[in-house]
Amino acid sequence: MSARGLVRALRDPDVVTALDAGGWNGLIAMARAERLVGTLALRIGDRRVPDAVRQILDDARLDAEREARQALWEADRATEALAGIDVPVLLLKGTAYAAAGLRAGQGRFIGDLDILVPREAMEQVEHALLRAGWEWVKDDPYDDAYYRQWMHELPPMIHAGRDRMIDVHHSILPLTARQAPDMAAMIADAVPIAKGLYMLSPEDRICHAAAHLLADGDLAGGLRNLWDIVCLLDGIDPSALEARAARHGLAAHVGQARRLAAALYGEGARLSFWDRIVAARLLARDGWGRERRKPLRFAFSVRSHWLRMPPGLLARHLFTKWRKGHRPV
């Protein structure tokens, strides 16, 4: 069993009415492992399901509501903390979707608070957050220097009282990545959600989600990120999206994201050989919620490092981490 059953249930929730007990156990375990169980619960809605399943889905829905409430409170706290320095707060990902009431936010698991600010405001933002009770998570000077020199975000911070993390971004991709998105344009074209709160434009939301899924990281949580893209594509003008993606150097990634979205969650699409490999990695999960295809997963993990930095820098980084006792598996 691969995660195809989960993908099918999200695409066409009517299929769940035919599931037996084993099918339900597998679907729920996969949905939890991929952090899609809240989304699944909302997709299934009021369809007829066994009583035991109904209770599980109700729990998932309540958890998602709490997630959204907590995420919005965290955004509110960050806005308050930054009110004095006149930097607009641009919400990214889950918190933005929840704050704006987008379909992508419905039932979505929301982890950390991700915000985007202009690079020149990073220092001010950092000090304002430290004053308001956030503190550093990592105490390793190498990690700290690494984030500041090469990454697109500050080292992660956590709020001492509320125990919630914030990631402060100045770009959507590491500085060492091959693509260099036009961040000035992204920030200039941001759209307001509420007073003092902004999010990316509809096209830029997709560019960000596609970059996050395919140009950065090892595709962990990829089915959730791809579901975001499916929802964000609603009502988008394809030619406007293509132009915007090209401007950020992300045309290939946005194109692939659209093909994968259509193939897995939509009406189907013609997939290239490379698309199929990515799809196989996305679906590498079994009915016990276990990760499958270990070699493929490992290859994508290696690739994620490769994408993030040029070979010489990567070698130096991995050697430093290895000396500090970090092992990849």
Partner: peptide, 14 residues
């Protein structure tokens, strides 16, 4: 055994 055969939680010993 669980009613309906559907479990609230999966536990794995790996």
């Amino acid at each position: 055994a669980p009613v309906d055969g559907v479990a609230d939680f999966t536990v794995r010993l790996e």
